[in-house]
Nucleic acid binder design. Sequence first.
DNA 1: TGACAAACTTAACACTGTTATTTATATTTG
DNA 2: CAAATATAAATAACAGTGTTAAGTTTGTCA
Lengths: 208, 208
Amino acid sequence: MGITDRKEREKQELTELILKEARAVFLEEGFEKTSIRKIADRIEYSPTTIYLYFKDKNELLLGLHQEAFTHLFAALSSVGSVPDAFDRLVALGRSYIEYGLKNPEEYDLMFMLSAPMDALDCRHEVWCDGERAIDLVKSMVDDCKAHQYFPPEINTHSMAIMLWSTVHGLVSLHLKNRFAMFKDQMDIEKMIHNSFTLYVELLKKFKS
Amino acid sequence: MGITDRKEREKQELTELILKEARAVFLEEGFEKTSIRKIADRIEYSPTTIYLYFKDKNELLLGLHQEAFTHLFAALSSVGSVPDAFDRLVALGRSYIEYGLKNPEEYDLMFMLSAPMDALDCRHEVWCDGERAIDLVKSMVDDCKAHQYFPPEINTHSMAIMLWSTVHGLVSLHLKNRFAMFKDQMDIEKMIHNSFTLYVELLKKFKS
DNA sequence: TGACAAACTTAACACTGTTATTTATATTTG
DNA sequence: CAAATATAAATAACAGTGTTAAGTTTGTCA
């Protein structure tokens, strides 16, 4: 049956067209201003058609959420070439921060907005991308333990969560303008960089 | 002129009534569901009256934002009685996390939502509460330096930002459900606690 | 060609923040 | 005291939101 195949293909194509235009609006204008009607206008279909392809707005944003993770993992992949375990972990942190600062809306979607998590929740699914990400950090922490950068008795999971929290804290406080009070006295991106560098110095002391 | 006095008083009273009901709705239902019309219903005035007292919804939320800081500072004040400088800093971190977990909507308002910062921005004002909060951390970092817990050459500001970022990261990732993938394997509040404890162990190594 | 099913649209519901206009009230002035 | 004025509040409306029930068009198959 070539017809069902074509229909399947057309459905796939429209799904991707919706995601494409949704992504364009989202990256330019953010979550709030990404309305179903605006996407509908751009794809030249009625707003209700979108509901035939996505359960609701949260589900649609979950699609973008997954795309964003592909994008993030690609940005982080370059650190694999760093030979030393500790340097690799540091490079991961720096790349993560850099990604967050350069892709504010995607970062918002991945780690701050409720919408995609709500969608996952009512699907009764676990957050695979999150698991993958933290597993990456955990494997790097284990590498650091194996090379005596961190003491063997520390809990890998706790360490990974702590590392993630620090870089997320730096990025998210900045993206939500909570460093605004410093903007006249210093360059905030530099400040974030300095804080991360200090954090790295601190982590180096964990060796002994 | 007793009349202008009374009018002033009445205006003050209605301002506070609006804030009171806004706070009640906000704490129960969060930012999204705190609508002008819902507040208007509760205070038994028309929605437009609220605009005679607050420029817009952001400005109204800025009022709640400032209230929340008073609440936070009160919650943190108890750590002042901890005698040792390092223990005091640790107690501050623990209290901060505890406050965030127990007051999710207020925490959201203070450190995650854009609305209050947008309001401050168009008022061309600096974020005083934020400055006060970071100054508190900085003074504690200086105390730690004075008592040889931290090396004297470290930058106090960078250190304070790093400390804040870590605890904010832990709280905010949890509040935005980004630890959800662990919820079947462990108690997440305990996990946050464990990560913070590990962070404290790390900070202790900064001494030498 | 007619029956059927899938795809899509129209119209509507129940909301949202916000503003221009109008009405009612209270105060001041002649 | 009555008229003019200033103030406070309300009504109606604009332009938008996510979402759904009902109706229409389109394409496929017997």
